[in-house]
Simulated scan of single mutants.
Amino acid sequence: MDIGAKLKAIREERGMSQRELAAKAGLTNGTISLIEANRTSPSVASLKSLLDAIPISMAAFFSTLEDSETPKVFYRAHEFTEITPGGDGAVSLRQLGKAEHHALQVLHETYPPGADTGPEAIAHDGEEAGIVVRGCIEVTVDGQTSNLQAGDGYLFDSRLPHRFRNISDQTCEVVSACTPPTF
């Protein structure tokens, strides 16, 4: 998905200038310009701030085509929606299906060594839960921090500020869910 082009199209559709979006999201208009030109990739936290300023949910922003008359039940790995494509040590978030048509959002998350969701904590409506499938992840929720290993999990009110970081030297994978799909 071309994140920059989609962000620009939605911003223009809503009649917002880059400067206005930047002010509402707490970023510079130069940053907005770089993102829209695909010259930089936003962190998860920055993208969340941008989408909150528009406002549009991550689920709606990254919605995939899904036949509304015949609900899709099974998805192959290549059919997941890339919310953040990863690469170059960045977090990869892959969404199962079109979350805006369901009461639950499911993500397959991959954190390379040193990757995180961004320097700022994220907060959004709903509840969030996940299980570490492989590796180790540092999770901070409302000031409480824990290092979770494969087989460990978390469950919290996602209105609380939270952040995920891989402080290990191995890739971490997490399968998570959010309800309602507001992330």
Rank of each mutant, 00 (worst) to 15 (best):
M1N: 05
I3E: 02
G4I: 02
G4M: 08
A5K: 02
K8P: 05
R11W: 00
R11I: 06
E12M: 15
R14D: 00
M16A: 12
S17T: 12
S17H: 03
Q18C: 02
R19E: 02
R19I: 06
E20L: 07
E20S: 05
E20F: 00
L21R: 01
K24N: 03
L27N: 03
L27R: 07
N29F: 11
I32Y: 01
I32E: 04
S33K: 02
L34A: 08
L34Q: 13
N38D: 15
N38L: 06
T40L: 04
S41A: 14
P42A: 05
V44Q: 09
V44W: 09
V44E: 02
A45L: 02
K48G: 09
K48D: 08
K48C: 07
L51M: 11
D52I: 04
A53I: 00
P55A: 09
M58N: 06
F61H: 00
F61I: 10
F62D: 05
T64H: 10
L65K: 15
L65R: 13
L65D: 13
L65W: 07
L65P: 12
S68G: 09
S68Q: 10
S68C: 02
E69F: 03
E69D: 08
P71Q: 07
K72T: 13
F74P: 01
R76Q: 15
E79Q: 15
F80W: 15
F80K: 15
T81S: 15
P85R: 15
P85G: 07
D88S: 14
A90D: 05
A90T: 08
A90K: 12
V91F: 13
S92H: 15
L96R: 14
L96A: 05
E100R: 13
H101L: 13
H102F: 12
H102C: 06
L104Q: 02
L104E: 01
Q105H: 06
T110Y: 12
Y111V: 01
Y111C: 00
G114P: 11
G114W: 14
T117G: 08
T117M: 03
P119E: 14
E120P: 08
E120C: 02
E120K: 13
A121G: 08
I122F: 13
H124D: 11
D125R: 11
E127M: 14
G130V: 05
I131V: 14
I131R: 04
V132S: 01
T140F: 08
V141W: 11
D142L: 00
T145I: 03
D152L: 02
G153R: 03
L155H: 14
F156W: 07
D157Y: 15
D157G: 10
D157K: 14
L160Y: 09
R163P: 04
N166S: 11
N166R: 06
Q170C: 06
T171N: 14
T171K: 12
C172V: 09
C172I: 10
E173M: 06
S176G: 09
A177I: 14
C178G: 08
C178K: 14
C178R: 06
T179S: 07
T179Y: 03
P181F: 12
T182L: 10
T182V: 13
